[in-house]
Nucleic acid binder design. Structure first.
Length: 762
DNA sequence: TCCAGGCCCGTTTTT
DNA sequence: CGGGCCTGGA
C-alpha cells in the first residue's frame, strides 16, 4: 500500500497526526494520497473509522473515495463520515433538527427552487423586480450566507443594500415558515448549530479526530470556518489541494484559504506533490511556464519521468466554422490512427462554442458526447413528481405547492392563487393551511387539490418507497397528462426511471420493504445512531421518503449524455477539471474568449483565466492541440480577435505551428489561413446556411467605420487613454466595438463610432 | 388555458 | 444568432 508511493506521497500519507497541507499538482496522485492516508491512519492505530471525516465537493468524488477506501482496506467503512459539504451538513441537521430550529421533514431547495421561492417572495411583497431582479437577490443572499452572514450581519451602506437586506430577512422568514433550506443554508445552519450548541459541538469535536479535505482550493469562507470549527477540539486537518487549479472564485471559492491555512494551521507542514504521472514533458513544461505568470502562488513545478513527448500542435484558422471542420478532420485522423474516441476531448471556454463543433461532428457522422446540460433530477417532469412527494412529506412547502397546484391543469387560475396567497400572508401560514379560507366549500378545484394531496398521503402510508413514487405519479394525473402529450414519451420514460431510482435508493439504504413514510426510530444515544449508518446517505432518523427527497436535492444526477458508446468528449474547461484524456483539443484560443473579455479588467480575473488554461493543458496525456479562429460568430455578430495572450506565455519550443508562418508578431494581421488548406472557401460556406457568406466576412479581418478601417492587432491612440492595441473587434458600422489594450490604463471597450481613435501603426 | 410572437440577453457551475 | 421568458390575445 505504501511502498508503491513516491517519497513526498509517502511522507504525506505517513505524517504523524498534525495539521498538514498537501499541495498536489495535476496528475500527481492526489486522490491516491488521500485514500491511502485514511487507510494508514486506521491501520497504524491513529484513528478508528468513526473518528474520521472526509469531505469533498462533488458526490462523484465522495463515492470514489468511499469505494477506493473500501477496496484497499477490509475495514468497515460504516461509521466513517465521507461526503460532500452539503451532504454532511444535511446529516448533521437531520440528526439535530430541533437544536437547529428545523422541522424534522425539512426540504432542501435546489438553485431553481430557490429562485422560484424568491420570485414568489418579491411578488408577494410588491418588490420592484426591475430594480431587484430575482437573480441578483439570489446572488446577494447566497453570497451573504457563504460569508457566514445573516441579515443583521450584512453591512448596509446604502439604501439599495438596505433593501436587499430587508428582502434577505423576508426570505429567511419565508423559508423558516415553509420548512425549507437552500444549499448555502445547509452549511450556515450546520455551522451555527456547531458554534452555538456546546454539547453538540463537543460531541462532534471529540468524535472526529481527523478531518480530511479534498480540493481545498475550492472552499469558500464559510466552509473554511466550518472545518476549523469542527476541528477546533484538537483534531487534525489534512487539506489537499492545488492553488493553481482554483477556478471557482466566481461562485465564492476563496483561494486565500490555502495560504491562510498554511499560516494558521499547517505552519511548516506543507508537502508538495510535483511528480506528474499523466502528461509528457512538452505539455507539462508549457503548463509550468504559463502558470508562472501568476503572482502569489504557493509555488510548485510539475515534472515527469516520461520524456518530452510531442510538442503542442497549434492551428490558426479563418473562422469558427473552419476551426470546427479542421477539428473533425483531425479527430478522424486520430481515430484512423487507432485512438479510441472516448480518449479524445474537445474543450472550450464557454458553452456557446460547442454548437458549431457539434454541428461539424454531427454532419461528419463522428460520435460525440456533450457534458453539461439538464440533469435527471432537474427535469421538469421529475421535479413535478418530486413536488407531490414533497407535499406529502411537508404540507407547508409552498414552492412545491405552487409548482403542482395546477399541474396537470385542473382549472386553478391565477386569481384564485392570488387570493390564496393573500390569505396565507394575512394569517402568516402556508398556502395549504389557507385553502379553507379561500375555498370554503369542498367542491372547488382548490379544495379538491388539497384533498388530493391528503388522499395521496393517506394511500401511500403503507407502501414502500418505489410503490409510493409510482402511486403518486399515477394518481396525481402526471402519468395521464404526459401520456396524452404527443411529445411526452420521454417524460413518461423519465418518470418510470424515477420509480427505478427510488427502488435503487431503497435497496442501497436497506429500506426495501419498509413503509416509505415510517420514520426509522432514532436511538437516544447520539453516538449510537451516528455510527449506525452505512455509506454516503444518512438515513436513520428519517423516513425513506425524506431520505430519498434529500438525495434528489443533493444529487442532481448525471449530467452527461448516454454513457457507454465510444464518443468524442465535448465539455467546458471547467467540466474537464479532474479528468484526463490521451488527446485534448483546446479551442478558441483568442483574446476575449480565452481569456474571457469579462475577466481581463482585473488582475485577479486574468489570473483565474490563466489557472483555467493551466487546468485545460494538464488534462492531456500524450497529445495536445490549441486552435483559434481569426473570426467567429458571437451574439449574431462577426467578431475578430487576436491570438490569446496565453499562446505567447508559453515558450515557442513547446509549440509546433501547423499553420504556416509561425511566430508572427501580434500586430501582424496578414491572412495566414490562405495557405493552410482550411480556407473559408473550402470549409466555411458549405457548412451552414448563414446569411453572410463566410468567405466574404473572413477576407477582411477589419471593420470599416466612416473612412477609417480598424483591424485586430492595430495600434491606436486615444486622446485620454493614450496608446494601445486593438485585441478584438465586433459589429460593424455604428455599433462596431473594439476591445483595446492600452499601455497605461488597461483594457477598455470602446464604441468605434463614438470614440475618436487615431491609427498609429499597422 | 394555451400558444404565438416579441423581447432581452449572452462565462464558467456544484450542492 | 438562438434560447428562455413573459405577455397578450384567442
Amino acid at each position: 500500500m505504501i511502498d508503491k508511493l513516491n517519497v513526498p506521497q509517502r511522507e504525506a500519507v505517513t505524517l504523524a497526526p498534525q495539521h498538514a497541507l498537501v499541495l498536489a499538482g495535476a496528475g500527481s496522485g492526489k486522490t491516491r494520497v488521500l485514500i491511502t492516508r485514511i487507510a494508514w491512519l486506521i491501520q497504524s492505530g491513529y484513528a478508528s473509522p468513526q473518528g474520521l471525516l472526509a469531505v469533498t465537493f462533488t458526490n462523484k468524488a465522495a463515492r470514489e473515495m468511499l469505494a477506493r477506501v473500501s477496496a484497499i482496506m477490509p475495514i468497515d467503512t460504516r461509521g466513517m463520515w465521507i461526503g460532500t459539504f452539503h451532504g454532511l451538513c444535511n446529516r448533521l441537521l437531520r440528526a439535530h433538527f430541533r437544536d437547529a430550529g428545523l422541522p424534522q421533514a425539512f426540504q432542501i431547495l435546489d438553485t431553481a427552487d430557490q429562485l422560484a421561492a424568491i420570485k414568489r417572495l418579491l411578488k408577494a411583497n410588491n418588490v420592484d423586480d426591475e430594480k431587484y431582479p430575482p437573480r441578483d437577490v439570489q446572488r446577494f443572499i447566497n453570497g451573504a450566507k457563504e460569508e457566514g452572514q445573516r441579515p443583521g450581519d450584512v453591512e448596509a451602506y446604502d439604501s439599495f443594500r438596505r433593501r436587499m437586506i430587508e428582502i434577505y430577512a423576508l426570505y429567511e422568514a419565508q423559508c423558516q415558515r415553509e420548512g425549507v433550506v437552500d444549499f448555502p443554508e445547509l452549511l450556515l445552519r450546520a455551522f451555527e448549530l456547531l458554534s452555538r450548541n456546546e454539547p453538540v459541538r463537543t460531541h462532534y469535536q471529540r468524535r472526529f479526530r481527523h478531518v480530511l479535505v479534498d480540493e481545498f482550493q475550492d472552499t469558500n469562507t464559510l466552509q473554511y470556518r466550518w472545518l476549523t470549527l469542527l476541528a477546533g477540539g484538537g483534531a487534525t486537518l489534512f487539506a489537499v489541494g492545488d492553488d493553481d487549479q482554483s477556478i471557482y472564485a466566481f461562485r465564492g471559492a476563496n483561494v486565500g484559504n490555502m495560504s491562510d491555512f498554511e499560516r494558521d494551521y499547517a505552519k511548516g507542514t506543507v508537502i508538495r506533490l510535483e511528480q506528474n504521472y499523466r502528461s509528457f514533458g512538452h505539455i507539462l513544461d508549457a503548463a509550468n511556464a504559463l502558470i508562472s505568470h501568476n503572482t502569489g502562488r504557493l509555488g510548485k513545478n510539475l515534472w515527469t519521468e516520461q520524456g518530452a513527448g510531442e510538442q503542442i500542435r497549434v492551428m490558426e484558422l479563418a473562422t469558427d466554422l473552419s476551426e470546427a471542420q479542421w477539428l473533425v478532420d483531425e479527430v478522424r485522423a486520430l481515430v484512423a490512427d487507432g485512438r479510441v474516441r472516448r480518449e479524445i476531448a474537445v474543450l472550450y471556454r464557454s458553452n456557446a462554442q460547442s454548437r458549431v463543433i457539434e454541428h461539424a461532428l454531427f454532419s461528419a457522422g463522428v460520435a460525440y458526447k456533450v457534458y453539461g446540460g439538464l440533469r435527471f433530477f432537474e427535469r421538469q417532469e421529475v421535479k413535478h413528481a418530486l413536488a407531490y412527494l414533497r407535499l406529502i412529506a411537508n404540507l407547508n412547502d409552498d414552492t412545491s405547492w405552487m409548482r403542482v397546484v395546477n399541474f396537470p391543469p385542473r382549472g386553478i387560475g391565477a386569481r384564485t392563487l392570488e387570493q390564496l396567497g393573500d390569505q396565507a400572508r394575512a394569517y402568516d401560514t402556508s398556502l395549504s393551511n389557507a385553502v379553507a379560507r379561500v375555498a370554503g366549500k369542498g367542491g372547488s378545484n382548490l379544495a379538491q387539490f388539497a384533498m388530493l394531496i391528503a388522499r395521496l398521503a393517506q394511500e401511500t402510508l403503507t407502501l414502500t418507497l418505489p410503490e409510493m413514487v409510482e402511486h403518486v405519479i399515477d394518481q396525481s394525473g402526471l402519468a395521464a397528462h404526459y401520456t396524452l402529450d404527443r411529445e411526452g414519451a420521454d417524460r413518461i420514460e423519465n418518470l418510470n426511471e424515477l420509480v427505478s431510482a427510488a427502488a435503487a435508493f431503497a435497496a442501497e439504504a436497506n429500506m426495501t420493504g419498509m413503509p416509505a413514510g415510517k420514520v426509522v426510530e432514532q436511538p437516544q444515544d447520539p453516538e449510537a445512531f451516528a455510527s449506525a449508518q452505512a455509506g454516503l446517505e444518512m438515513t436513520d432518523g428519517m423516513s425513506p421518503l425524506a431520505a430519498f427527497l434529500s438525495h434528489a436535492s443533493l444529487e442532481a444526477g448525471d449530467n452527461q449524455a448516454q454513457a457507454g458508446q465510444d464518443a468524442v468528449q465535448l465539455m467546458t474547461v471547467h467540466a474537464a477539471k479532474g479528468l484526463e484524456f490521451d488527446a485534448v483539443f483546446i479551442t478558441g484560443m483568442e483574446e476575449g474568449l480565452f481569456p474571457h473579455e469579462n475577466s481581463v479588467l482585473e488582475a485577479s480575473g486574468l489570473e483565474e483565466e490563466r489557472r483555467l488554461m493551466y487546468v485545460a493543458i494538464t488534462r492531456a496525456r500524450e497529445r495536445l492541440y490549441f486552435s483559434l479562429a481569426q473570426s467567429r460568430m458571437l451574439h449574431g455578430q462577426t467578431r475578430y480577435a487576436m491570438r490569446s495572450r496565453f499562446l505567447s506565455e508559453i515558450p515557442q519550443e513547446h509549440l509546433k505551428w501547423l499553420t504556416p508562418r509561425q511566430g508572427l508578431s501580434p500586430a501582424d494581421t496578414e491572412p495566414r489561413w490562405k495557405s493552410s488548406g482550411y480556407s473559408a472557401d473550402a470549409f466555411g460556406r458549405a457548412a451552414t446556411n448563414r446569411a453572410t457568406p463566410v468567405s466574404a466576412r473572413s477576407l477582411t479581418s477589419g471593420v470599416q467605420v466612416g473612412t477609417q478601417e480598424f483591424r485586430v492587432g492595430q495600434g491606436v491612440r486615444h486622446a485620454r487613454f493614450g496608446d494601445g492595441t486593438i485585441t478584438s473587434l465586433s459589429g460593424s458600422g455604428l455599433d462596431a466595438q473594439a476591445q483595446i489594450q492600452f499601455r497605461d490604463v488597461g483594457v477598455k471597450t470602446l464604441a468605434l463610432g463614438i470614440a475618436k481613435l487615431e491609427v498609429i501603426q499597422g
